[in-house]
């Protein structure tokens, strides 16, 4: 299903990096960074200004870019901000991204933004609601929509199904693609005691268009998706297992949002993951445009 679903997706393979503010100036100054694509958060670019904004736009206009939203509050109940959706649509067209991803969660309630990825109840009502919102959002975007599975630290309310069934029901109900975050699956498996590979085996992997990978940290009895550490070997192995299962070179994005290292260290981390990617798919990956 994912094959052929997304026009322009063939430009995106290998391991990319999230474009982060501390690296904008350095990345804008060099096109030989070797990163096959970047992922950017529209909320951080739209409406911004100044030197970092100009650097970000220069990179977005030069290199292949995927877009990943943080705060659309897909599972929420607040009405869409039509002005923002207009800006978002124009931004997606400008970047040339083959798809746009959002989180399967809610981030705002009654007009108040919490700026955290909060879990949906695993209920039939919530699944229907999220699927309807995703269909509605998809109809307003100029590119296909992907939804990403999040980490969750508690079930919200009395569950009528498990997380896997909830995600599958939303993806199928909305008929949208899946941004599969393998670190989130791994973290959830640690926190809730399940086998991540068995979990993935139940899922509609034909909908996967992109993977996310990141580091995490344990705090007491809870493992948190911090995006603040190097990716550990078991998560890399889960990425490889997933890629082999998919049998196609979907792009993988390394997320790093906390304790952001120097660009050279991050590029080295990306190269390590690229080697693991190539090991599975044996796909040579070129550098960025320009």
């Amino acid at each position: 299903m994912a094959q052929g679903r997304f026009a322009g997706q063939e430009r995106f393979t290998g391991v990319g990096l999230g474009l982060r503010r501390p690296h904008l100036e350095a990345v804008a100054a060099r096109a030989d960074h070797g990163v096959p694509f970047w992922e950017t958060c529209p909320e951080n670019v739209i409406g911004d200004g100044g030197r970092p904004h100009r650097d970000a736009c220069a990179i977005l206009d030069r290199d292949p870019v995927l877009t990943h939203g943080l705060a659309i509050s897909l599972g929420g109940f607040d009405p869409w901000d039509e002005d923002y959706l207009g800006d978002l649509g124009r931004f997606l067209v400008r970047t040339g991204t083959p798809w746009h991803s959002e989180h399967l969660c809610f981030t705002a309630v009654d007009g108040s933004w919490l700026h955290e990825l909060l879990p949906m109840p695993f209920t039939r009502e919530a699944a229907r609601h999220a699927a309807a919102r995703a269909r509605d959002l998809q109809a307003r975007l100029p590119v296909p929509l992907l939804l990403e599975n999040i980490t969750y630290y508690a079930e919200l309310g009395a569950a009528e199904m498990d997380e896997a069934d909830f995600i599958a029901e939303v993806l199928e109900g909305a008929d949208v693609g899946w941004l599969l975050d393998v670190n989130n699956v791994y973290v959830n498996a640690l926190n809730f005691g399940f086998d991540p590979k068995a979990w993935l085996s139940r899922m509609p992997l034909d909908r996967v268009a992109q993977l996310h990978i990141a580091g995490h940290k344990r705090f007491g009895t809870l493992t948190v998706d911090t995006h603040g550490a190097d990716v550990i070997d078991p998560v890399i192995e889960l990425m490889q297992w997933t890629l082999a299962r998919l049998g196609r070179p979907v792009p993988v994005l390394l997320e790093r949002d906390n304790h952001i290292p120097d660009l050279e260290d991050l590029l080295a981390e990306r190269s390590r993951l690229q080697a693991a990617y190539d090991e599975v798919l044996a796909v040579p990956v070129g550098g960025g445009r320009g």
């Binding site: 909320e43 951080n44 739209i46 943080l70 901000d81 981030t107 007009g111 108040s112 933004w113 700026h115």
Partner: peptide, 9 residues
């Protein structure tokens, strides 16, 4: 609850 924007900034 007066954070009424999706933009972190």
């Amino acid at each position: 609850r007066c954070v009424g924007s999706r933009h972190y900034r």
